[in-house]
Write a protein that binds this DNA or RNA. Structure first.
Length: 331
RNA sequence: CCGGGGAUGGCAGAUCGGCUAUGCAAGGGACUGUAAAUCCCUCAAGAUAGGUUCAACUCCUAUUCCCCGGA
């Protein structure tokens, strides 16, 4: 029921097909972030479908906080809850370990969140996140991990890897356990490779996860901060550590030109809040000069023709576009 | 006509005898597994004419306009 196949290669870039219980996706693909089960800004799932989105990403942590996984399970699962029949991913809450910083206490067994909303305390262990995700029922599930900031030093990163790897293993065991009686291959679990900006640690983390064995592998950690060369290097080195026949997922990466670059390096899967957030904040990604943009925004006929605006979906496939590689920084 | 109250950026709306907030709008920037329908920056004002004062958006007088009440 769950499978991944590389169909064509162009250098390191891959054209692929991911099969899930909710249909197939052609990769590289971009996951739109619907944290709380909906794209923010009054965007309906139906709208996303019309726009051509083929997969969305929701968040275990947020959905656990409200409305709670049981509520969603009672509503028929996350797909029904979201009015979304296509493939769906849930992140584990690992990113919140990083983004909620001071509200989180990490120990070897799991993490304790202090809700920024009401101060209430919530416990996440690898097992708990998998149980929640089992109830939510998305196709792709992520293990609880420790996401480190860009500036994290070697020691901090080593600790994060140790926990993330151990937790990923526990997540895998829990998935197998909780899947007993359920159709095999209902959910695909990824291993998240941490390692900060240290190439050798990235390699080590990848190797350990490979030994455990996951359906897919993702590159995690806060990478999006200046130092482009370094980031590119990390992505290249880490990508090379991921088996050819597994999907490679670069987490939280979303600048159009960066996506193209990452596709070139062999990444198949993306997610990012950037396009949705920026749109909500009044910014669009366009491929027009100022004059054309002005015309675009004023001329209703222009508005009907979306050729000159592009979406993340276009971008992830752009490397394979036969001509006019407008997104290519280096050509 | 009489009495009372007003007049501050494009709009709304405070304060103050010496530096005029703030919100919206407008323009710019940021945002990367969402504590973000958010955050940062910029633009831009004292109805008109006099007077008092070292100094007036602020106090005084007149004019114009607006609002409320009464004939």
């Amino acid at each position: 029921m769950f499978s991944f196949r590389v169909q064509k290669k162009l250098g390191n870039a891959r054209l692929s097909e991911l099969t899930t219980p909710h249909g197939n996706i052609s990769g590289p693909f971009f996951q739109f972030v619907a944290t709380q089960g909906a794209i923010r800004g009054q965007v309906m799932s139906e709208d996303m479908e019309k726009l051509g989105a083929d997969i969305m990403l929701a968040n275990t942590y947020h959905l656990h906080m409200r409305p709670g996984e049981d509520t969603i399970a009672n509503a028929g699962g996350l797909h029904k809850f979201m009015h979304w029949d296509k493939p769906l991913t849930t992140d584990s809450g690992g990113y919140q370990v990083f983004s909620l910083g001071q509200h989180v206490k990490i120990d070897t067994d799991g993490v304790t969140f202090q809700s920024p909303l009401d101060g209430s305390s919530h416990r996440f262990t690898p097992e708990i996140t998998m149980q929640i995700q089992a109830k939510l029922g998305p196709d792709i599930v992520m293990p609880l991990d420790v996401c480190t900031p860009f500036s994290a030093g070697r020691e901090e990163v080593e600790k994060a890897i140790a926990l993330s790897t151990q937790w990923a293993k526990r997540c895998k065991e829990e998935l197998i356990k909780s899947s007993a009686g359920l159709p095999a291959g209902r959910q695909g679990l990824y291993g998240i490779i941490q390692g900060g900006v240290f190439p050798d640690l990235r390699e080590k983390a990848a190797q350990e996860l490979r030994e455990i064995g996951f359906f897919g592998y993702s590159i995690g950690g806060e990478l999006q901060e200046k130092g482009e060369k370094e980031i590119k290097k990390i992505v290249r080195i880490t990508t090379a550590q991921i088996p050819e026949d597994a999907p490679r997922y670069l987490m939280g990466y979303g600048k159009p030109e960066d996506i193209v670059e990452a596709v070139r390096l062999g990444i198949d899967q993306f997610d990012c809040v950037l396009p949705i957030r920026n749109a909500r904040h009044g910014q669009i990604f366009f491929n027009l000069n100022k004059e054309e943009l002005t015309k675009y925004l004023q001329d209703s006929e222009y508005l009907i023709d979306p050729k000159k605006l592009y979406t993340m979906i276009d971008i992830t496939k752009s490397v394979f576009a036969s001509d006019k590689s407008i997104f290519a920084p280096n050509n």
